[in-house]
Design a protein around this nucleic acid. Structure first.
Lengths: 110, 110
DNA sequence: ACTTGTCAAGTAGATTGCTACATAGGTAGA
DNA sequence: TCTACCTATGTAGCAATCTACTTGACAAGT
């Protein structure tokens, strides 16, 4: 049976919040998040499936032609939805270290 | 042996007053009060049983169907009785910090 | 003495995290 | 060609944690 999307004010786990923050900071596919966070694939990929199920992120596969040109497997790119952004905001208040762990572009350059 | 309900003008402990104030502010079940006050479960639940015994609050269990739909244990919802409201009024005079600790909806938005 | 507060533990189902493994094409060395 | 490693995504199964309420034993308060 289909499951209701998680309301955007819901509290995220630290891992889920970390992944959202990483996406927001420009690490926009699973493997890059694995590398930069050190989290194992068995943590990252299921967590991202849940985030997508809850409509906090949305995915689209890279075109095969690009993957071919770069001679590697195709990537699955993610980005935050509007709900994802508001949830990330709330998570930053809940986990004050988030932004120190993974500074966003703006936080780094401005 | 059955005990007489506590008369509504009786002085409440700080904890009991805090719980009444939290209920009034919309934290309407035990676990939410635990989280928002930081009080341990062994403080909150027995205190709420005493408040109910003294007829300052009244409880009703959430329907199992709702708990099932949200996939979590059923909650026991509480609300203030008339006696509870007058006692809370008295407690606010007695503990002036109560309303600063847990602002009610009205106090926040107006 | 009696009431109240706290710790510790328990229950039970749901969710989340992690290890280990699987897949599959690309690269590079022996 | 055979082996080994790299990029990239994925899953099964188990352990741990979360949600929510409850209780017994004991300390502290009044």
């Amino acid at each position: 049976m289909a499951r209701e999307p998680r309301p955007s004010e819901t509290k995220l786990s630290h891992t889920a919040a970390l992944i959202l923050q990483a996406l927001d900071a420009g690490f926009v596919y699973g493997f890059s998040i694995m590398e930069m966070t050190g989290l194992p694939s068995g943590t990252v990929y299921p967590a991202m499936r849940r985030l997508e199920r809850d409509e906090l992120i949305r995915s689209n596969w890279e075109k095969q032609s690009i993957a071919d040109a770069e001679q590697r497997p195709p990537r699955k790119y993610y980005k935050l939805t509007a709900a994802g952004k508001t949830t990330l905001e709330a998570s930053r208040r809940r986990y004050p270290l988030l932004e120190r762990l993974i500074p966003t572009e703006e936080a780094r350059t401005v």
